[in-house]
Amino acid sequence: MTMVMMTVNGNAVNANVDARTLLADFLRQELQFTGTHLGCEQGVCGACTVVVDGKVQRSCITFVADCEGAQVTTIEGFDDDPTMSELREAFSECHALQCGFCTPGMLTTARDIVLRLGDIPEPQIREELSGNLCRCTGYVGIVAAVRKVAAGKSPVAVNRPATISAQPFDGPRPAPASTQATSQAIPRALPTAASTGGGTSIDEQVKVAASPEQIWAVLSDLRRVVPCVPGAEITTLAGDDLTGKIRIALGPIKVAFSGQAKVGMDADNREGWMSGRGRDAGQGSSAEGTARWKVLADGANASVIAVTLSWKLGGPLAQFNRSGLVQDIVRRLAATFAANLEAAISGVPQPAQAGAALGGLRLIWSIVKARLMSWR
């Protein structure tokens, strides 16, 4: 791990990063600046373009460790930049975007062109934009927008970073209010998922038809309770330390996390906690999180397990943090866990799906169906 100190959008950032961590992944996953888009991940398409020390740069092929002391500005950092404000208006007026995926990188490059070169002829604008690919517009509107903003301007001596004031950074950036991008309005900041400490958190209550004593007898025995979690299994268990695996299948993404966790139990209060992290060697996804649970009586022979889950996903699986889908999945899995736990308490053999991969088409369909019913 390497300690890196830099400034991102005016905020001082200190972080321990792996030597191989790429700037685009760090900006998106750790700081939640998801306006930096990932397309080719080879430095070709330009969707990930940011400004580093006043110069445009591909963040998907830049290591965070090489940004020590650097000033980094993403599309979110240009909210109050006058040149970017002109470009946003021109992009809207000239219909310079459709799907919007390339737009953050295209705007960042366009700002560099206007400040660095000023009023230049159209062929030169096209050459300067050639490093940013757009699959929708045909570039005519984009070129027209840049020409409009650049008209009459002279180049500046230095391509300045965005006009922002430095502020201390104490943690991951709070999620901005959701803004929808359309062909008529350029978003100031693209929407991100609500987060806590750089990840996502959810509180859930699982009702189980059993007494608190019966439930705690299973919950305090990890070898009995882990098989109740779909897709999970224990590899080794030594005291409070365990290693294990969990398989996840969501649409085309299929991963198998292997990792370590530490567990704590308080039998007097019937509560416990677990923290751990894992990585999938195939897809490159990563996960870390914590769980806390407490068993509460709920009537004569029923109980409620109050659970707080906090997690942070990286890699391809991180896309599921940016919608309500992951919360729906967690709630549906909680219901499955409760059914499996009741079966374990009663001595009934675990259903076959308990050891199957978390997710799958049946789970996704049940969530979509529930959402459709709620909209009626």
Rank of each mutant, 00 (worst) to 15 (best):
V143G: 08
L22K: 15
T21W: 10
T49V: 10
K55R: 14
V64G: 03
V72M: 12
A47F: 09
Q71W: 11
T137R: 06
T108M: 15
D66M: 14
E41H: 06
G131A: 04
E30N: 15
K148L: 15
D66Y: 11
F63W: 11
R20H: 15
S154L: 10
G105V: 13
P82N: 03
D25C: 09
A65P: 00
D53T: 09
V149H: 00
G54C: 01
K55C: 04
A151L: 12
P104Y: 07
S130Q: 03
L133F: 07
A110E: 00
C60Q: 09
P123T: 03
L31V: 08
I142A: 02
D81L: 08
L31P: 02
D25Y: 11
T73C: 15
E86N: 02
D119R: 02
V56P: 03
A150M: 03
E122M: 10
S92L: 05
E128L: 03
V52Q: 05
L97Y: 04
F33N: 13
E93T: 14
R28F: 05
T49S: 08
T103D: 04
I113V: 10
D53S: 12
P121T: 05
Y139G: 04
G131F: 06
G118A: 01
L27A: 05
A96C: 04
L38Q: 15
G54I: 01
